[in-house]
Amino acid sequence: MSTILVTGGTGNLGSLVGARLRAAGHEVRVLSRRSPEFPVDLRDGAGLDAAAAGAEVIVHCASSPRGGDDVAAGHLIGAARRAGTGHLVYISIVGVDVVPFGYYTVKRKVERMLEESGLGVTILRTTQFHDLVAQAVGAAAKLPVVPLPKGIRVQPIAVEEVADRLAELAAAPPAGRVADMGGPEVHTLPDLARAYLAAHGSRRRIVTFPLAGRAYAAFRRGGNLAPGQAVGRGTFAEFLARAAEK
């Protein structure tokens, strides 16, 4: 079995990946700013060499919408080279190559950095997680009416299924960019918002509005979707039902 470092290992996805790898018998190192074992901020890289030393595989789940993912990836690639790590697994997003949205653009830059690093890499792109969609709608639902961009479709996927796939890829040889993972259903954002509001007993009115710009146009064209890779099984309705039971 392997020694595997999971960045973002205390987060929603990383913690699930770590649990699956441990269950499979691997030694797992958890790296994040809040990790008691390896409290590393990838944006400055301090302590990263110690965390990576002896790691045969790195699963890179850490990410920040506030920016700096490319800087973090540069530090991680350097540490992986120094440690002699043979495999780096990266979670990316469907559409990073066709949707000119700032966060997506940086994710695509990280993909290229990994592809050009000389390391053994595996890159998995997925559609949005159920909980991310719920968080976005929940934030909008705090207003008197629920404002949502018009014409956007989403194909949410269960984070648990993505964790299963990442753990599987981490235990296998480097594979480059593998097949995308999409959720089982494509819905309009207002439809998902209605389901969320109903599950929370809210009758707030949804108001859609157009946006300007190339990123919005790419989202409207479905650049964030993977209908040909609808391999996910858990639906958004099932996610909401499970959340209501907690």
Rank of each mutant, 00 (worst) to 15 (best):
A55S: 08
G151M: 07
R194V: 01
G182P: 03
A170G: 10
G68D: 12
V162G: 02
H60A: 13
L114Y: 14
L225C: 06
G74A: 14
G45D: 10
I206H: 01
A139I: 08
D180I: 04
G47C: 07
S32C: 02
H87N: 14
A193S: 00
P173Y: 11
S15Y: 02
L148Y: 02
A24Q: 13
L48G: 10
I152L: 13
P65A: 09
T10Q: 13
E161P: 00
Q135S: 12
I58E: 14
G120I: 05
D97P: 01
A134E: 11
A195R: 10
M181N: 12
R233M: 04
R33L: 03
D164L: 08
G228P: 00
L31E: 12
H87R: 13
E168K: 03
L132P: 00
S92F: 05
Y103S: 07
H187I: 01
A175C: 09
E160W: 02
L119I: 11
V94G: 01
P149G: 05
D70N: 13
A55Q: 08
D180F: 01
A241Y: 06
K142I: 12
A72S: 15
V98M: 02
I206R: 01
A140Q: 01
R220P: 05
A241T: 09
V96L: 06
E27N: 07
Y216G: 06
A46D: 15
V99Q: 00
A140S: 03
G228I: 02
V231K: 10
V162N: 01
V137P: 00
A73N: 12
A62Q: 10
G151Q: 07
V96M: 03
R214C: 03
I152S: 02
L189D: 03
G201A: 08
F209D: 06
P36V: 08
R165C: 12
I77K: 13
L48T: 13
Q135F: 07
G78A: 15
A218C: 02
E115C: 11
R108I: 03
K246W: 08
A51Y: 07
A212D: 15
L48E: 11
G151Y: 06
P190T: 03
M113A: 15
K246P: 06
L143W: 00
P174G: 12
Y104E: 05
S2G: 14
L225R: 03
A52L: 09
S2L: 11
V231C: 12
I123A: 08
S64D: 14
A72M: 06
R204N: 09
D49S: 14
V30K: 03
G18P: 02
G11N: 11
A226R: 04
A170K: 05
A167K: 00
V17C: 06
G11F: 03
R153N: 11
G176D: 02
G18F: 02
T208N: 02
A163L: 04
T7D: 13
R214H: 08
F129Y: 09
A73Q: 15
Q128K: 07
R66E: 11
R153D: 10
D49Y: 01
F129L: 01
A52S: 07
F38I: 04
A46E: 14
I157H: 04
L211T: 12
S63F: 15
R112K: 08
T7Y: 06
I152D: 03
V106Q: 15
L114D: 14
P210A: 15
Y90F: 15
D180S: 11
E245H: 14
V30C: 13
A24K: 05
G74R: 10
Y104N: 07
